[in-house]
Design a protein around this nucleic acid. Structure first.
Lengths: 140, 140
DNA sequence: TCTAGGACCTCTAGCCACTAGAGGATCAAG
DNA sequence: CTTGATCCTCTAGTGGCTAGAGGTCCTAGA
């Protein structure tokens, strides 16, 4: 216990400036300070910060994490809301994967059709300059 | 020709403030102005802005677009560089899809395991609070 | 007890690609 | 000539940090 910020950082894998940032936006509480004004943390903060890191790694936004943290502090409440946050996030990830996959298709077609000649014959530049052409080709 | 910015916006699908922003960062040239200081555009800007929009839709970054625009103005040059920009971008998209897919797997497992009870029994909260547990379960 | 240097502090600014809004000027149709 | 839609500049905000300046504190070794 009584960890300085660097130690907390090492234990949780969250960078020192990021911890201070999380404090600033109210994601973690202001910890007690030494007489010389340095932050000192306990094991609660380690848990909380780990929770935050896991959630960030799973792509949750800070506002979602705020709610999830609130919930984790009310063990008797229904987990309906947590479920709904997670499901929405999952749907969002699905949307992103879908749109990146469409993108990937177009890009890869573009790259495949480039015959490494001059700019004036280059499909990459051509497609960018006239996207409708590209779409038309594709439909055909 | 001699289009006001709103008209250019309608023709290209790029919002008015975004056009001004592109001018500010030097992606498009400063156009001539009326006596009353309003921007007037010609067909060149329509083409250029369409190019930019297509490239943005394909997820290219502004710096890449800058280079691609430069190239499209040098039709006799080799398209090697354009090809390389596009290939790098494709690789980046692949990386993003891969990491989102891993994420999707974890999230969907979490959501599936939630039995809609109380927070204290909720897998979603549990996984976030102790990620190692989750990974261990998965490996097992 | 002193000192060195690593860790800490606050504050500001920057990243990307825009978006929003205030407060005012201009343009074109009727 | 009036009206109201469009235009202008400027500043600030978005998200989630990251970087750097300029300074203070803590602690281990001499």
């Amino acid at each position: 216990m009584n960890l300085p910020i660097g130690e907390l950082s090492r234990l949780t894998g969250v960078k020192v400036p990021t911890i201070r940032f999380y404090e600033q936006i109210g994601l973690i509480d202001q910890p007690p300070r030494t007489e010389g004004n340095q932050r000192r943390y306990g094991t609660d903060e380690v848990r909380r910060l780990n929770f935050i890191r896991h959630a960030r790694e799973l792509g949750f936004e800070v506002d979602d994490i705020r709610e999830l943290l609130d919930m984790s502090g009310k063990p008797q409440a229904s987990c309906h809301q947590a479920d709904s946050i997670a499901r929405n996030h999952l749907a969002e990830i699905d949307r992103r994967i879908a749109s990146l996959t469409v993108l990937r298709g177009e890009l890869s077609r573009m790259v495949d059709e480039c015959h490494h000649g001059r700019i004036c014959d280059c499909r990459i530049i051509e497609v960018l300059a006239d996207h409708s052409q590209c779409v038309a080709d594709h439909v055909h």
